[in-house]
Design a protein around this nucleic acid. Structure first.
Lengths: 193, 193
DNA sequence: TAGTGTTTTTGATAAATGTCAAAGGAAAAG
DNA sequence: CTTTTCCTTTGACATTTATCAAAAACACTA
């Protein structure tokens, strides 16, 4: 008798780092929902509390907030990675971060409350959670040291080197605020090659 | 018969968030080492791989690195919090971060390899690990948005408000690089009150 | 193809911050 | 108490980046 298992890229992403038992795997799948969304869809609207963790199977999301009337991109999230409104999910408090999709995307949603239950019941899922958060932390460290003492030009070149496809997929206005500079400055940096 | 349990502030710090069983507690204690260090002691020297997670019971540490000959403070760590050279511990690769003590301190050291074993054996300790990392991540988020689009003055006032005692305990030269500015600029910001 | 809206570039100028050098001040050492 | 060292402030100037306004390039639609 065959056991048909749909291939889910989610598990391909985490399996090199965390071993997930078959039981845990199906427990996870039971709380995960897969959706197709169009470009421009808002996953987390302004004022809403982010109650899910999202895994992006395909597509591209942007986490942003408005500060002094300016739209500031905090994070881009591409294929095979996780996103959520971090402080909101952890402290369960609304914050001003929104998440929108910049491309038609395939998203897996996991309700945070369900995930907490799985953390209780399955040690390996708790480990997966730790792994995901840790990875994110390492990533944040790199961004922090970028912003702390690199010039705008260094930051741009860094991005160009580490994430060249992002510049193809995202408009410069969004990239510039991600780098912590204005659009005009980014344009000038690009012109003086 | 009395069971004498020494009070360990470590557990006071985490217990509001993570419930640690007595078994796990003693397992943790068995791999934790408490030390007194003088001011100026170097926990993680240049080129060394950080193989421990440190919990600061008393005192103050500074994580820093040298970039273009300049000493850059990445993080301060005060009483009842954790520190380690993040990328080094996770990826187990040497990096250029050093950790030194700015005051005489009481430090609990946990070897990373031992901790990994405990993660395997004790679900609640794994949860504790997830909790610590998550907390750190929330904290990093705040710093990131500070650095991304706030002026030097805003950042200073922020620090003054959120962490006033740090300014009493640490010299301005170290604070300034933490804020991502030069010492002269910080001095001028302070003078124009 | 012309027309409309959006994104990117360019220009002129202002503001913020860095750099280098030196002078004060405070704290530690003799 | 004096000397030495370290920390902080001040000054003059250079550089980077922001701001505001407009032009140019591009993309989409009728």
């Amino acid at each position: 008798m065959f056991k048909t298992e749909k291939k889910v890229s989610f598990f391909d992403t985490i399996s090199p780092f965390v071993k997930i038992s078959p039981k845990s795997r199906s427990a996870l799948l039971s709380v995960m929902q897969k959706d197709h969304y169009p470009k421009g869809h808002v996953l987390v609207p302004l004022g809403g509390i982010c109650r899910h963790v999202y895994y992006i199977e395909k597509g591209l999301s942007r986490t942003f907030y408005i500060k002094d009337g300016k739209d500031i991109t905090e994070k881009f999230c591409t294929e095979n990675s996780f996103t959520c409104s971090m402080p909101a999910s952890i402290v369960n408090v609304p914050d001003n971060r929104q998440i929108e999709l910049l491309e038609p995307s395939i998203i897996w949603s996991m309700p945070y409350t369900e995930l907490e239950k799985l953390y209780d019941d399955y040690h390996d899922i708790e480990r997966m959670g730790r792994f995901v958060v840790t990875n994110e932390l390492v990533h944040m460290h790199q961004r922090l040291s970028d912003l702390q003492f690199r010039s705008a030009e260094e930051r741009y070149n860094n991005l160009l080197q580490k994430n060249p496809d992002l510049l193809q997929r995202v408009s410069l206005g969004l990239i510039s605020s991600y780098l912590g500079i204005t659009q005009e400055t980014l344009s000038r940096i690009r012109s003086r090659v």
